[in-house]
């Protein structure tokens, strides 16, 4: 019954439904890319510099005759994979540190928050670039670099939630009825702090997809995987002659990130009804 309410609240946000539909297309495209385009997206399959709809090529070919549509389908895998895994890693780091700081307070909080502050001060994209460049681009280094610059907001959020809930009376009641710290954290506090964390992580996947595409635009993507940012970056120098080579991959990024943001807002409306102030004068 609660899930029914959730869907009704979610569906009331039309943008969120559109976001979910776009996302479904992207996921399907990524999942079935090897079936739709069995050849490697790195292979030259047609004449170079073909425009969209020319010679049986849906979105045209690039400077080396590689199929743009195929690249976009295969690129969806990379974007989603890196977006999700780096968010998961950031979530683990951020929630752990934030929860510890918020739950224990005192010097634990002070130390962890100074540490978080340091990472918030560092210009995050510059650090990602430095990290990936030094540790040589690979899926692992990219995921790690994105996670390292993304966790601080999650840590702050988790800390704020834990702190607020820690002083809530039902948590104090759990302490006074002799519950263990683990029970208090996992059964009393965490379930009640989940909604804002879910909303933030859905938005963070969007940021991670953008970061990954920016890295591969600069040539710091995983050299073995076709990615949207790489396609835009490679087509940058021929933009005057062949607009489609950078236009379509960029559009794919835009739609995916937009969809993730819309989903995040829908989740926010559905999970934090009090924060959503639609219709309120």
């Amino acid at each position: 019954m609660q899930s029914m309410n959730f869907w009704r609240a979610y569906a009331r946000n039309k943008g969120a439904v559109i976001g979910l539909l776009i996302m479904a297309v992207v996921v399907v495209l990524g999942l079935f890319a090897p079936l739709i385009y069995p050849e490697s997206p790195w292979d030259m399959v047609n004449a170079p510099f073909l425009g969209p709809m020319e010679e049986g090529s849906l979105l045209g070919t690039d400077t080396l005759g590689r199929d743009i549509a195929s690249g976009i389908a295969h690129g969806a895998r990379v974007s989603l994979l890196i977006g999700l895994t780096s968010t998961a890693v950031a979530l683990v780091i951020g929630v752990t540190l934030g929860a510890l700081a918020g739950f224990f307070g005192g010097w634990v909080d002070d130390t962890l928050m100074r540490f978080t502050e340091l990472f918030q001060t560092i210009p995050n994209f510059v650090l990602t670039v430095v990290l990936v460049a030094i540790f040589t681009p690979s899926q692992g280094s990219i995921v790690l670099a994105i996670a390292i610059v993304s966790w601080p907001p999650l840590a702050r959020l988790a800390r704020a939630e834990f702190m607020a809930l820690r002083s809530r009376e039902f948590v104090q009641a759990a302490i006074t009825t002799g519950q263990s710290n683990a029970t208090i954290i996992f059964r009393e506090i965490l379930p009640n702090s989940l909604s804002p964390l879910i909303v933030s992580s859905s938005l963070m996947v969007a940021t991670a997809v953008l970061l990954e595409s920016s890295l591969s635009f600069l040539g710091l993507g995983d050299p073995n995987a076709m990615s949207w940012g790489y396609m835009v970056g490679a087509a940058r120098t021929v933009i005057r002659q062949a607009w489609w080579m950078s236009f379509f991959p960029g559009l794919a990024i835009l739609l995916t990130v937009l969809a993730l943001n819309l989903i995040g807002e829908g989740l926010n409306d559905a999970l934090n009804p009090r924060v959503a102030r639609k219709g309120k004068a």
């Binding site: 943008g15 969007a206 953008l210 595409s213 920016s214 635009f217 940012g229 835009v232 970056g233 940058r236 933009i239 005057r240 607009w243 950078s246 236009f247 960029g250 990024i253 835009l254 990130v257 937009l258 943001n261 819309l262």
Partner: peptide, 17 residues
């Protein structure tokens, strides 16, 4: 929402175009 979701390097290229 659009500005939020667009990769800036791509917008740069498109505006330049």
């Amino acid at each position: 929402l659009l500005a939020y979701a667009t990769p800036i390097y791509w917008v740069g290229l498109m505006l330049m175009l």
